[in-house]
Design a protein around this nucleic acid. Structure first.
Lengths: 336, 336
DNA sequence: CTGAAAGCGCTTACAG
DNA sequence: CTGAAAGCGCTTACAG
């Protein structure tokens, strides 16, 4: 049906081996021959069968993607758009191994990758306790974790600079004379939450403010838990005048709780979000938040993975991406 | 490295052919043999190399996806989550052919599909005028278009019932005594806009209302154009008391224009959106809108495609998915 | 019911 | 510089 290497060899009057060599950039082939072959390749729109190629041990040029959340995680969308660019630039296609599910113990993700001849894997949405990555690490498949600090064998990771981000947010609030600053936590088990919490403590410490446990409300990034967490903070006799949240969604929930308590943002309480999702600029007051450069993270994750794939000796990378504080209308000076 | 069919054949003490046969469900193999083979397959976690499989003409179990928008289209996210389920149920993996770009004339998407041995393709985000689908149609690769009425060869499509949706929205407004109903158009060239416009005219006609060209504002689904389009409508001496929009984003833009003109929703003007994106329930007033069942569309698109792949004789499908009017706070009775 | 052999489309030593 | 041949891991007639 579709043209194969033999067709173009025949058309060009050379052997299959020669066509293969020009396709693979061997320098030993004569310039004239090379040009002739290339002409036919182009004319016949020949594109080598990737299955045959990977079968003989050549590169498959596919990267697998592995998510807890499914492809539809709102957040992942932006990561993807960054990945796309880098994928294209480096010649990869992206394969989503839909067959996999964690709960199926009979099934091995690693085996699936191998059966698909995937060259590398991006992993997103997992926490350490979710599972053991042993099999993946031992398989030696180049792997890049997003937002999880795995650095072992041929696996590295990339994440925002979560600690510095919150530290800076705290600094901003302190500049507005806040001293009573609450923290609306994300999922406790999560890598990013831990680092954001570290940033919180560090920011406080730098300003000489004593850490108060009751100023930290539990959460899980959701709007609902943001609402509930904020209610707890509001119930305090000596309640905070500001709060930094581990996600925009929970910040939005917090703002609702504040409003429902008859208070207002930012007059009574200042709130800072995290992520800068689209909605952050839509809510009223528009949310001041930490912008994560997810697009960059997506692009970089592919670039790092590519290097890991190409260079077998490369030490696993560890990339920390700067964030940006986007100041909008949800923070104001602390009430005296 | 990874175990192959020869390893399990050896372990089970049978020939490679026999292993292959049990793997492929041949009924000619002895029950005992079959069980033995299966035991080793499981024990050794054997998973056949998909490259070798597709090379011999067996199914590759991959579906390609083809988008104008990139994977990160906010809308596509929900479609994907529906696709995921159906992909899993039917044993496919999803491959995103990142290498492709429309502007590259040297490059053929069809050839890329062929070189990847993709069994079917889902196409999303294109309009008729964007390009010619000739090559794709002629290739006879089973194809499913989302939101574009291509039905030819082995290509079919799926879309929401756009016409009925707007017709019903109009009916709802008429029930609120509106007679002056505007239409905020989406991209003129788009399939969905055309059908929504048809629904608009039909809804009007059913209520015996004369169509007025000046009640139709141009747009492109964006917030900005929603804002501008609404401004045009507001400038009319005899302005509409309500407007149905071709997207939630443009409805949000329209609400801003109304507010900026010193009017309010729904007291002065009622507005209806389209899509029911997450933000629709966040804006104030919460947006009454047409909910598209994108998840169902995603799931169904894979199911239909699977049938098309499996049954070579199947006529190309055409699926129209019902919508739902989600009533929130952006519509009220027409002012007398 | 089972297995030996050919072949899918490529690449890569190897010989010339 | 070029090509014949072996082989990647599988499946499928075919013979037994």
């Amino acid at each position: 049906m579709a043209t194969n290497i033999r067709d173009v060899a025949k058309a060009a009057g050379v052997s299959v081996a020669t066509v293969s060599k020009v396709l693979n950039g061997y320098t030993t082939v004569n310039q004239k021959t090379k040009e002739k072959v290339l002409r036919f390749v182009k004319e016949m729109q020949f594109q080598p069968n990737s299955a045959a190629r990977s079968l003989v041990g050549r590169r498959s040029m596919t990267i697998g993607i592995f998510l807890t959340t499914g492809l539809s995680h709102p957040f992942f969308t932006e990561i993807l758009s960054g990945m796309e660019e880098a994928l294209k630039e480096n010649g990869y296609d992206l394969i989503y191994l839909a067959q996999f599910s964690w709960d199926n113990k009979e099934y091995s993700f690693v085996r699936h990758c191998q059966s698909r001849n995937v060259e590398g894997v991006v992993v997103f949405g997992f926490q350490h306790e979710d599972m053991s990555f042993e099999e993946l690490i031992e398989s030696n498949i180049p792997t890049l974790f997003i937002d999880l600090d795995v650095k072992e064998g041929r696996a590295g990771y990339i994440s925002s600079d979560n600690e510095e981000a919150v530290e800076r947010a705290i600094g901003y609030l302190i500049g507005l004379n806040h001293r009573k600053i609450g923290f609306l936590s994300g999922d406790k088990a999560s890598y990013v939450t831990r680092h954001r919490f570290d940033g919180y403590r560090k920011g406080l410490a730098e300003a000489g403010i004593t850490y108060r446990e009751d100023y930290v409300a539990p959460g899980d990034f959701s709007r609902e838990m943001g609402y509930q967490g904020m209610q707890k903070l509001l119930a305090l006799s000596d309640r905070p005048t500001s709060v930094v949240c581990c996600s925009d969604m929970s910040a939005i929930g917090a703002m609702e709780a504040i409003r429902d308590a008859g208070l207002s943002v930012p007059e009574d309480i200042s709130v800072i979000g995290f992520d800068d999702i689209e909605m952050a600029s839509f809510v009223r007051p528009a949310l001041t938040t930490v912008r994560q450069n997810m697009k960059h993270i997506g692009r970089k994750s592919i670039e790092l993975l590519d290097r890991l794939i190409v260079d077998k000796e490369l030490a696993p990378p560890e990339a920390i991406v700067p964030t940006e504080l986007v100041v909008r209308d949800s923070c104001g000076p602390a009430k005296a």
